[in-house]
Design a protein around this nucleic acid. Structure first.
Length: 568
RNA sequence: CGGGCUGUGGCGCAGUUUGGUAGCGCGCUACCUUGGGGUGGUAGAGGUCGCGGGUUCGAGUCCCGCCAGUCCGACCA
């Protein structure tokens, strides 16, 4: 491709709002353009890079036995309603209505659509296990998109779905996809950790996330360095600290004016935050849920939700008031609220004694509170968030918290969707059974951001061979006829497979743009290189440079452009 | 849902306090210059100053309303 006609423009200054390296570089290297929050366009070079990644993922899925299909991006909302996800609290699902009033929704994942596709055509047992995949646009109406391509509203995702006769089959398909995804991350040179996860809005059990460590990431994983235990923040467990609180004592009220915060209270009473009982209120369909954790803990809302069931929502201050709670001084001892109340105690609370908690009276707390003696609860469970340094649930050694970016997610769905949407298959025993499904998603757009996040230096992108839009950047310096002739000779038959900087700009500009774009190999043709008998070859990764004699150029280009001469 | 900040050529910004012909740098076009690390110069093109209303002889600037973007908080009782 001749650069003088390529639709491409780099930028000399950093965009004002980019804090992520990948965001900054994608914009400066002219690969993306923002249209509105979380919605971007790609330029030719940006699209080529994305397509390389898309093709690579497709290759691995084909290897795993997947067949590619295309599902609608605009889907009938009724499909969502029938699967049971339309009625749930799914604010990311973008709904719209056409002019006749038909309710539609934009694809957010494709469990429903894929199940429907298979159901409509029907499937024979002989076709199982069936693995179907598509690469398609997804739209999620995120509250806060951010970081360039890191968290988008509209994005490209490769999703796949497996269909098996029984649970055993599903587990085998799941294992096959897990390997396929591992290969993808290996080929893109991304170090990714497999993490046990909560299944969230997908439903099902035994989900696995692929998380890449990244300081600017938005997920957190909990990992034990001693035994290898790893879990998502939402699913992480810890072994409880026993014997918190000040020991058994008699119950006594203490006056604590203005101490409505844990930190303030701890200072006022001269105790540890862990000696205070923290009470957090939620609403579950009209029922008040009181979650009790020790004062230095955070309630793990996903964990609480898993224990309580249904969907929880934090209670606003006015609402809490309305139900008879004394905001700032609420506690479980002799608590009376309007309506139903469920008290859930964290397992650490159960084992503590001599705690401080709110007295349900403005300006007063209670000291010497002992769980079990002074108040009771309906459920005791692990509902607190794990913190740095907590004891590993497997081996007891300290746990660490790490920020990560989620790149892929695979689920064992079971028969949830096939049952609700009526997808059955007849086995050899002549009985119709719902199919066992798995769901697998990998974010192509986000993968593009992750590759740059992981592969760049202070001058620009450093593409890994498998994702580079072109393998070779040919720079022509000067306009002497000798140089021009050599350039044309070099570009020769490979013109379409390399980027050829034939612009009339100075050498410095070309070098800077080449470094910024970061193609794996740079070939320079100039009067100087000519004097040394050929062209200069430079590797972007480490700057290693050598001269290639004129007559060796065709062979070298063949090596670089047809495969195995990557960066490694 | 709340708070802060910001909306001015493609990008980065000044101008708003004190109302008076819309500016700078980068990028873009043409020509010259330079030609191994963003060369120097000359001449140009490009703007509903986020949107609507108001005050005024006159509004990017003052007033009211709205919208968008962005950052922080979201809840610990």
């Amino acid at each position: 491709m001749r650069q003088s006609v390529l639709f491409w423009q780099t930028q000399r200054t950093d965009p004002a709002d980019a804090e992520l390296a990948s965001h900054r570089l994608l914009v400066r290297a002219g690969l993306i353009q923002r249209f509105t929050s979380g919605i971007y366009g790609l330029t030719p070079l940006g699209l080529m890079a994305q397509q390389r990644i898309e093709d690579l993922v497709r290759e691995e899925l084909t290897q795993a036995g997947a067949q590619e299909v295309r599902l609608p991006f605009v889907q009938p909302f009724d499909l969502w309603r029938r699967s049971g996800r339309g009625a749930e609290d799914l604010p990311e699902l973008m709904r719209l209505r056409d002019r006749r009033g038909e309710e539609l929704a934009l694809a957010l994942t494709a469990e429903e659509a894929m199940t429907e596709l298979v159901r409509r055509q029907g499937v024979h047992a002989s076709q199982l296990p069936l693995l179907l995949t598509q690469t398609g646009l997804k739209f999620r109406d995120e509250l806060r998109p951010r970081g360039g391509l890191m968290r988008l509203r509209e994005f490209l995702m490769q999703d796949a779905y497996s269909f098996d006769l029984d649970e055993q089959g599903m587990t085998e398909s799941f294992a096959r996809m897990r390997l396929a995804y591992r290969r993808v991350f290996e080929r893109l040179d991304l170090d990714v950790r497999e993490v046990a996860a909560a299944s969230g809005m997908m439903g099902g059990a035994g989900a696995l996330e692929f998380q890449m460590p990244l300081a600017a990431g938005e997920d957190e994983i909990i990992a034990c360095r001693a035994c290898g235990y790893v879990a998502n923040r939402e699913a992480a467990r810890r072994s409880p600290r026993g014997g918190m609180g000040k020991g058994v004592a008699s119950l006594s009220p203490v006056e604590t004016p203005g101490a409505t915060q844990i930190a303030t209270l701890a200072t006022a009473l001269g105790c540890r935050e862990a000696d205070i009982l923290k009470a957090v209120f939620y609403d579950k369909a009209g029922t008040t849920v009181l979650a009790l954790v020790l004062g230095d803990r955070q309630v793990g809302e996903e964990k609480l939700q898993a224990v309580v069931g249904g969907s929880l929502r934090p209670l606003a201050a006015e609402e809490a008031h309305g139900r008879g709670l004394v905001v700032g001084y609420a506690g479980p001892v002799a608590l009376e609220v309007t309506g139903t109340l469920i008290i859930v105690a964290d397992m650490e609370v159960e084992q503590a004694s001599g705690l401080v908690c709110g007295a349900n009276r403005e300006g007063w707390h209670l000291a010497g509170v002992t769980p079990g003696r002074d108040f009771s609860w309906q459920m005791a469970a692990d509902i607190a968030q794990v913190a740095e340094g907590d004891a590993c649930p497997e081996c007891g050694m300290p746990l660490g918290v790490e920020r990560t970016l989620e790149l892929g997610h695979i689920f064992r769905l079971g028969t949830r969707y096939s049952e609700r949407l009526g997808l059955h298959c007849q086995g050899s025993d002549n009985v119709l059974r719902p199919l066992w499904m798995g769901s697998y998603g990998i974010g192509i757009s986000r993968l593009l951001a992750a590759v740059i996040e992981r592969h760049h230096d202070d001058r620009g992108i450093v593409w890994p061979a498998e994702a580079a839009p072109y393998a070779v950047h040919l720079l022509v310096l000067g306009e002497d006829s000798d140089v021009t002739t050599l350039a044309q000779e070099v570009a020769g038959a490979w013109q379409d497979r390399l980027l050829w900087d034939d612009r009339a700009v100075t050498a410095g500009v070309k070098f800077h743009d080449a470094d910024l774009l970061g193609l794996p190999w740079r070939l320079t043709v100039s009067r100087r290189s000519l004097a040394q008998g050929g062209v200069e070859l430079r590797r972007r990764l480490d700057g290693q440079t050598r001269m290639v004699r004129r007559e060796e150029v065709p062979q070298m280009l063949r090596d670089l452009l047809t495969g195995d001469a990557g960066q490694g």
